Computed example of a mutant assay.
Amino acid sequence: MSRVRGIGAALPERVVTNHDLEAIVDTTDEWIVGRTGIRERHIAGDGEFTSHLAERAARKALASAGCEPCEIDLIIVATATPDHTFPATAVVVQDLLGITGGVAFDVGAACSGFVFAMATADALISVGSARRALVIGAETFSRILDWDDRTTCVLFGDGAGAVVLESTADGADAGASKPRGVIAHAMRSDGSHRDKLYVDGGPSTTQTSGFLRMRGQEVFRFAVQATVDVVEDVFTRAGMTADDIDWFVPHQANKRIIDASARKLGIASEKVVLTVAEHGNTSAASIPLALDRAVSDGRIKQGDIVLLEALGGGFTWGAAIVRW
């Protein structure tokens, strides 16, 4: 079992509002807010890569944890927008942090990537393959957007978030009756839906990076159903119900999806952490960015039960329950 020891986040300086987008694409602030809840997003600057955002978030997480980079023996970066086809962005971050030991790799599960990466790190820590991990969600989705497609370019933003996970055996509360840590996780994939949310390029198919494409209404319908399915599964695995949850931190894709999912799950709106209005959909970065916000402003406190959930292209979807 592993627990969260520290958390950090990084956002590009440039903020693009809905009103800014009105000048470059046929859309309106009213249309975007009404359908998504998004009001603005951060966009990476020239020469600002996914690895740069990931490094900044990682350093903040390390500072929060009171750890030095040399204490990390596992780095997992969840991203759909890596710096390069290879090497993995995780090894770039490893080098930027001055770490020369351990293992580093990327997880590609689109918007579900952070949940998948946390589950992977927790499993590796639990079997003794690692003691302390950096789990990072980092994206520069602005690089794969078609800025002439008003249905997709208004939805996404850039950013990164990171947590330090460590073995509960190393924690001060290791003997507690209710130790902090990752309590349960559940993951799903179904490739038959891959044409509903995808990028229309790739090294093997088109030798290009391509652009993001989405069939929005179909994604919306599936997302609510899938969220309820995987969250009910993780409740069963944890022996919990919605009443046990202190905070729900979902993937920040669309406020209407979040609201509908929370209603179906019986989670009160005041327990839902929302950052979609300020960040847009930052894919794998959205959950750790929202977590960092809620921890920084004092909402999420030590001992709270936190539910994480996400759905991404593939489709992939997953959930995790953590005692903070």
Score class of each variant (00 low, 15 high):
Asp200Gly: 05
Ala10Asn: 05
Gly313Ile: 12
Leu97Pro: 00
Gln302Phe: 06
Gly47Phe: 05
Thr85Cys: 10
Thr81Phe: 02
Val25Ile: 12
Val234Tyr: 14
Thr28Ala: 11
Asp173Asn: 03
Ala10Lys: 03
Thr205Val: 04
Phe222Tyr: 02
Pro179Asp: 08
Thr168Phe: 01
Phe156Lys: 01
Ala174Pro: 01
Arg256Thr: 13
Gly175Glu: 09
Ala260Phe: 05
Asp20Val: 11
Ile245Leu: 12
Glu218Cys: 07
Met187Ser: 11
Glu232Leu: 15
Arg293His: 06
Leu155Ser: 00
Gly128Thr: 11
Leu307Tyr: 10
Val295Ser: 02
Gly303Cys: 03
Ala10Gln: 03
Ile144Glu: 02
Arg194Tyr: 13
Lys264Arg: 15
Met240Tyr: 07
Thr152Glu: 04
Arg5Pro: 00
Lys271Trp: 09
Gly108Tyr: 07
Lys196Gln: 15
Arg237Met: 13
Val230Asn: 14
Thr36Lys: 10
Arg221Glu: 15
Val228Ser: 13
Gly34Ile: 09
Ile136Lys: 08
Leu134Asn: 14
Ala253Thr: 10
Gly113Asp: 12
Asp297Tyr: 01
Pro87Asn: 14
Pro82Trp: 01
Thr100Gly: 00
Ser142Ile: 07
Gly181Phe: 11
Lys178Val: 04
Leu307Gln: 09
Ser209Thr: 07
Ser2Trp: 03
Asp244Thr: 08
Thr152Tyr: 05
Trp324Tyr: 11
His42Asp: 03
Ala88Ile: 10
Asn18Leu: 15
Thr275Lys: 01
Glu68Leu: 12
Asn281Ser: 01
Gly303Trp: 04
Asp292Phe: 02
Leu165Glu: 13
Gln225Val: 13
Gly210Ser: 01
Gly98Cys: 13
Leu21Tyr: 06
Phe105Pro: 05
Thr236Ser: 15
Trp317Ala: 09
Ala61Val: 02
Ser283Gly: 00
Leu124Glu: 15
Met214Tyr: 06
Gly239Thr: 14
Thr140Glu: 02
Gly137Asp: 10
Pro288Ala: 10
Asp190Arg: 02
Leu308Tyr: 13
Ala277Leu: 01
Val231Asp: 14
Trp147Tyr: 11
Ile24His: 03
Leu265Trp: 14
Val77His: 04
Arg293Ala: 07
Gly113Thr: 14
Ala57Gly: 04
Ile24Leu: 08
Ala44Asp: 00
